[in-house]
Design a protein around this nucleic acid. Sequence first.
DNA 1: TTCTATGCAAATTATTTGCAGCACT
DNA 2: AGTGCTGCAAATAATTTGCATAGAA
Lengths: 137, 137
Amino acid sequence: MSLQNKELRKAGLKVTLPRLKILEILESDQSAQHLSADDVYRELLAAGEDVGLATVYRVLTQFESAGLVIRHNFESGHSVFELSTGEHHDHMVCIDNGEVIEFTDQIIEERQRKIAEDAGYEIVDHALTLYVRKMVD
Amino acid sequence: MSLQNKELRKAGLKVTLPRLKILEILESDQSAQHLSADDVYRELLAAGEDVGLATVYRVLTQFESAGLVIRHNFESGHSVFELSTGEHHDHMVCIDNGEVIEFTDQIIEERQRKIAEDAGYEIVDHALTLYVRKMVD
DNA sequence: TTCTATGCAAATTATTTGCAGCACT
DNA sequence: AGTGCTGCAAATAATTTGCATAGAA
């Protein structure tokens, strides 16, 4: 039984071809690791698979509920998905080429907690995205 | 000549009723100060003004280009707008009641700059949003 | 009169849902 | 037979655009 197979079962999802394929695509995307539903859909078509875009959305949403993937809403008007590694991280998005770099910083994390606490709140989630450009000089 | 009047002219926009009204609505919203296009539209209707939703979007977009307002994309599926104060700040959004609290933290700002710099990038913009809940215990 | 601004409807884009058929138990 | 899963088309939701008209300079 493959690894993907286990992940799906663990998430309480029946192992089906669309789900396996979509999981594979998410896992194989080493570079940008942040794909839109349409990106995934096009990769499926390119691989000769016959799945509908609606199924891609359904599967990605199920994966999100299952905690397998994380959905981000960068300021681009559409969602992007990445495989959840379990470890939290923030993002740096290059506005020139769309490249996404992940990072975490303990000092920032700690400050956030303190700011919320001082205001009488506890943090449920947070999103920090830096929109950056390669330095020239 | 009113204050709004000046702001519009300074932005190179002709002073028209929809623009004035929309600016007023943004300014008068002391509490939440983060309105969606539809919120603004409904306030206009409630005030008896006859403007189309399309105009609201056009005006808000123009205001954004002019630097008068800032558009945010919290994870809600639609944009919200706030009057630009000139000073940068981040947001804490209460997931229970939607309340928005603004804050800034120099330590976080500085860390961000350093993280980007270390990676060879300069920050063009950034967005930090904490999704929080009121503490109980 | 010339150029900008606006309302309304139609078009787009991203995403979701209804439904009939197929697959697996 | 029953329940879950899928494709396709239709439905939504947010936002944008085309166009003919109304207004201001």
